[in-house]
């Protein structure tokens, strides 16, 4: 872990790392923590809502799909701020996704019995400027996404 932190801090800019149990009550904590970290960029309410929503989607996926609702899993979030760009990674060490292209289809869900809307990936793709998923069966899923926070830029211009 310390090696990973050093690796992150080699980059310019500010960063944070958060690890927590894969319990649904932590979904609200995770999105509020990321939003609080990003507040230093002076985002608009809309930008904050977008970030909170994508964090909520990704963490929910870790819990429901990555760990099948097993509370013993660990979810790791990192957020990094470089100038006006925020990069968020959200990772689990769970099941992995069998067919990533299918999982990304709007309205597709592997768990229809749970009344999932199948919109998680679509929301992440739409609300962020960049979005990528790396998933390996049996070893977990890693999501990396970026968003430019416009409000600070507008302030400088």
């Amino acid at each position: 872990m310390s090696e990973k932190l050093e690796q992150i801090s080699d980059h310019d800019g500010n960063f944070m790392t958060l690890q927590f149990a894969s319990r649904s009550e932590n979904e609200a904590f995770a999105r509020v923590a990321v939003a609080a970290f990003v507040t230093q960029l002076d985002p608009t309410m809309d930008e904050l809502t977008d970030l909170k929503t994508v964090v909520s989607e990704a963490v929910t996926n870790c819990i429901i799909h990555g760990y099948d609702n097993d509370p013993n899993g660990v979810v790791t979030i990192t957020a990094r701020i470089e100038e006006e760009i925020v990069t968020i990674t959200i990772e689990d060490k769970g099941n992995g996704i069998e067919d990533l292209e299918l999982a990304k289809q709007p309205l597709y869900t592997s768990k229809p019995e749970l009344e999932r809307s199948g919109m998680g990936f679509t929301i992440m793709e739409n609300f962020m400027d960049e979005f990528e998923v790396v998933s390996n069966l049996g070893s977990g899923t890693h999501i990396r996404m970026k968003k430019r926070i416009e409000s600070k830029k507008a302030l400088y211009n």
Binding site: R31, T49, K52, S56, E115, G118, M119, G120
Partner: peptide
């Protein structure tokens, strides 16, 4: 004050 795709699932249901 906040809703994500889990909310969409409940509403659709």
């Amino acid at each position: 004050t906040f809703m994500d795709s889990s909310g969409l699932g409940v509403i659709l249901g």
